[in-house]
Nucleic acid binder design. Structure first.
Lengths: 358, 358
DNA sequence: GCATCGCGTGTTATCGATAACACGATCTTG
DNA sequence: CAAGATCGTGTTATCGATAACACGCGATGC
């Protein structure tokens, strides 16, 4: 009787005839037809369900191989109600090695749990970030890790409220509760600054990112605290905020060096500013010492005293991944359960280490 | 009558009772129930189908907003038979700025077409690459862009044969036909080498990545051709292959500089080798000139003559994205059509530009 | 005045995979 | 030897969204 179920594209469309290999994505039914069994049996074989005769299973496996069958994980996750196995990662600038390493750390951890990472880049644009988060939620990612571009995190709050686990990286959540992983910005800045003070510097300049950025603000606070502890007051004229690019940083540093009583050392909140400052110092031919946050390649060949609060952005990503995976685990364990207590937000802090060159 | 359709989790599970906002991912039916319409009407409103009374549409939109409804794009793409809107990107090492910029280029282009990028990192591991590609296909990505880790590309051939558009970046496809985007490795290396020759150098050392890597082989070929054109024969003792890390490159360069008749210039096939060679030259205090492939930050402050064949990896990614998008466009246009001619594989080449420091 | 048309909605079937149940056949057991 | 247990497999319903069709109701046509 040749079992011609009325369904199946093979029947209705009649295909071209020549090759079966060209069919984009055969389905369980295609495999089933070829192996002369039902779709359910195919599904069972793929699930390694033991309740199938070895002979049948072999036929099915052969048919699947011949057709190049790959099961549709999206359809599967829909049916199973399991997650999609996707994790959304939203960063401000993937071109920055800092974030690409963070991404790698995230991927390494979540990948170890069978999850894949979907990356979105915001380019520091809030609207872009909103759109990305919206989209990731619509794609039903199992969770989101985000380095927010701005203090306005209402879209993240909405996603979290909607039941999507959110982990905030590099800055704390604002206006809602979520796991987060931070760098010891304050401590690192304080330690590095203290080091400059110990070396005898009393007039220290400060070059920082926009103060609206959490990390920048924290590092400024650490800097200020170190000065205060040494009985020194921070001088506004030595502080330049807002530089994001090396070129801007070079100009800002040149300004400081041109002051009547120029700083004998400069503290920079990130490697963009550090490199920019280096160029200014070099151009001025001044013996100014340099200190900053974030290590970078070739820092050792610059030929001036350089102290850096370094930290592992890979580890930052890994920790974010771990927090997210832990959340997903809880969620799975809770299942349909009623224990409405979602375990309060966790906060991890990645330490900084002091590196000295020159 | 209150229309209690027998379906719906709201009915069977009976929920907790307090808040609706906590429901993870409401569905069209939840919205429908709240707006007292059918699921189909909700779907129509979300599709902006004009055949819905404005009053009804407003009710639906209000209900959707109250519930925080986001439609399930995965389920939607399953029903529509449209793609998943995902593009797989597989690279060898995202921590390398080269690849992260490539990723950014890809994402910028495909993102402009409503596609999202799923990133996989292989760490140069072939098995890992196989697994990733397998997985991406199973997730039904609309296409894959890959920087192969190895000459063995059978898994890519399989994916392509299975009907998934594949674009190969940075090296050519091997053993199957696919669009690809390459760098002008040969031309760049030849030009840079010629520049060294023009500067009077006759003994030029070569530091390269493993010869199995396509780019490395091509660059060696360009180097050799330039020498040949100048009537010089390549001397094996000046050639060191296989260094992937700066530390290895430093040792290899030191070896060359320690030869009885050391090279007066070194050509390096990538920035790992260039930076490694720089350290060796600096340590030896030799006046050796340096040339290489791939620009890098701070190249201008090294204090020795440095010529670089630079190219834009962002552009490489963009071009790959464009090729893929073009393929997807064709596919969509062809639809169920029978014009079995899949337009032969395209090949794009990104040019290099000469940069000189020092 | 009765047929027809169009509009706004609801019903059913579908995408691919699979859980839950159903069913015929063989095997067990008192 | 009849009643039930077990095994291998097929059928139906489901996940969420939606195309195709169906349907009821008021308006228009001649």
């Amino acid at each position: 009787m040749v079992a011609a179920t009325r369904t199946g594209k093979g029947e209705t469309l009649g295909k071209s005839g020549t090759g079966a290999a060209k069919d984009p994505h055969p389905t369980v039914r295609d495999v089933a037809q070829r192996a002369r069994v039902s779709a359910m049996t195919v599904s069972r074989v793929l699930r390694d369900d033991p309740k199938v005769l070895p002979a049948t299973a072999d036929r099915v496996r052969a048919a699947a191989a011949e057709l190049g069958y790959r099961r549709n994980e999206m359809a599967r996750s829909l049916r199973l109600g399991s997650g999609t196995g996707l994790v959304g990662l939203v960063v401000t600038n993937l071109a920055n090695p800092f974030y690409s390493r963070l991404a790698l750390g995230v991927d390494a951890v979540v990948g170890g749990h069978g999850l894949k990472t979907v990356i979105g880049n915001t380019g520091h644009d809030l609207d872009s970030e909103r759109g990305l988060v919206e989209d990731l939620v619509a794609r039903r990612v199992d969770g989101i890790i985000v380095v927010p571009a701005d203090d306005d995190q209402r879209h993240l709050a909405a996603a979290a409220a909607g039941g999507v686990p959110v982990v905030v990286a590099s800055r704390p959540p604002n206006g809602f509760d979520a796991d987060c992983v931070l760098v010891d910005d304050h401590g690192g800045a304080r330690t590095v600054t203290r080091r400059l003070l110990d070396a005898g510097h009393r007039r220290i300049g400060f070059l920082g990112s926009p103060p609206a950025v959490y990390t920048g603000a924290e590092r400024l606070r650490g800097f200020t605290d170190a000065l205060t502890e040494a009985g020194i007051e921070r001088e506004p004229r030595y502080v330049r905020l807002g530089q994001q690019q090396t070129a801007e940083a070079t100009r800002a540093a040149a300004d400081l060096l041109a002051l009547p009583e120029p700083p004998t050392a400069l503290f920079c909140t990130n490697n963009r500013n550090t490199i920019g400052a280096f160029r200014a110092i070099r151009a001025a031919g001044a013996p100014t010492a340099l200190a900053g946050f974030d290590d970078f390649e070739l820092a050792d060949v610059l030929g001036l005293p350089l102290t850096i609060a370094a930290y592992d952005s890979d580890e930052l990503g890994k920790e974010a991944g771990r927090l997210l995976v832990a959340r997903l685990g809880e969620r799975a364990a809770a299942g349909g359960g009623q224990d409405g207590t979602p375990a309060s937000a966790r906060r991890a802090v990645v330490p900084t280490t002091l590196v000295h060159y020159g």
